[in-house]
């Protein structure tokens, strides 16, 4: 193996170097945005149109169900989407965290999403009448099934300590059949499909992170079991443009492009080194 090839290989297999270079590239891109044009993905537009065309007083169930670690990819979509729902008005918004890791993401929605776009009251929404934070429900299959069949019996008390049965919003909400749309922010999208939307024939919008798209969303979408989806920072940026409120996702998009270029260049470099190594090996023989 030649000295140059060896040093390139050593550099590529040096984890601190690769990770450090990636972090530096991201910092540079975040601090100096290139302002690359954003081409709206048809799927983001589809989600936007669904939200725009919701009938007045539609009941939207917004479910957070994801590990805290995935929030870097999930929150950028949640912010413009929730903003859109609140700005539109005339909707009944039910926020809930369900699943084994959803307790943390519910805190995050509260502190991060609302902190950035303002609490629903800012948009004229009244707690208990137009929006409600149902807090967190532990468990998986059983919780999903129970919630679908008896919403009030599964929740009992909301995040603010109110009895849900006493809230005006819950007058005609008893089962999953009473909701008009489910927005699922997280992994394992087959869970709401299995227990909620297929059984009660409800539309489902999934907000997923990039890694889960081919295995967790596309098969269900092509089979017609998911109505539409948003995916990662990219969709978040699309949605920010659609709602005319550029924010964190748009700011992160350049950094994302730079990071992809960085990774592609590493892959190319790795492959070139591999080929050079092979040729050098042949020559040596």
């Amino acid at each position: 193996m030649g000295k140059k090839t060896e040093s390139v290989l050593r550099l590529l297999s040096n984890k601190p170097f690769v990770q450090g270079a990636l972090v530096l590239a991201l910092i540079f891109a975040l601090a100096n945005p290139l302002g690359l044009p954003i081409k709206i993905d048809p799927m983001s537009k589809k989600v936007y149109d669904i939200m725009e065309n919701l009938k007045p007083n539609s009941k939207i169930l917004y479910v957070a169900s994801a590990p805290t670690g995935t929030m870097g990819d999930l929150i950028p979509q949640s912010v413009p989407l929730i903003y859109h729902l609140m700005r539109r008005g005339n909707l009944k918004l039910f926020f809930i965290g369900i699943g084994e890791s959803a307790d943390h993401i519910m805190i995050y929605i509260d502190s991060e999403v609302f902190k950035r776009i303002g609490y629903p009251e800012k948009y004229g929404l009244v707690y208990g009448e137009d929006w409600v934070n149902l807090g967190y429900v532990a468990g998986r299959e059983v919780s999903y099934e129970n919630f679908a069949n008896d919403v009030q019996g599964t929740i009992l008390i909301d995040r603010e300590g109110n009895r849900v049965a006493e809230l005006p919003m819950f007058e005609d909400v008893h089962t999953m059949a009473d909701f008009d749309l489910v927005i699922y922010n997280g992994e394992k999208s087959w869970m709401p499909i299995q227990y909620w939307t297929e059984k009660f024939h409800k539309p489902l919008i999934v907000l997923t992170h990039t890694a889960m798209l081919p295995i967790d969303v596309i098969p269900w979408y092509t089979a017609g079991q998911i109505t539409a989806y948003l995916c990662g920072v990219r969709s978040g940026a699309d949605y920010e443009v659609l709602v005319d409120r550029p924010g964190g996702a748009v700011a992160a998009l350049d950094a994302l492009s730079i990071s992809h270029l960085f990774l592609i260049s590493l892959i190319l470099l790795g492959n070139i080194t591999y080929m050079v190594e092979k040729i050098e090996g042949k020559e040596a023989k």
């Binding site: 910092i27 950028p76 992160a252």
Partner: peptide, 27 residues
Amino acid sequence: GNFTATRTNYVILPLKRILFDWLGLVV
């Protein structure tokens, strides 16, 4: 490929917090 892209996205959020929220960088 998607997993690699996601892992990068996870890094962006904390970096934004340092650059924009903490250091107050305005771009």
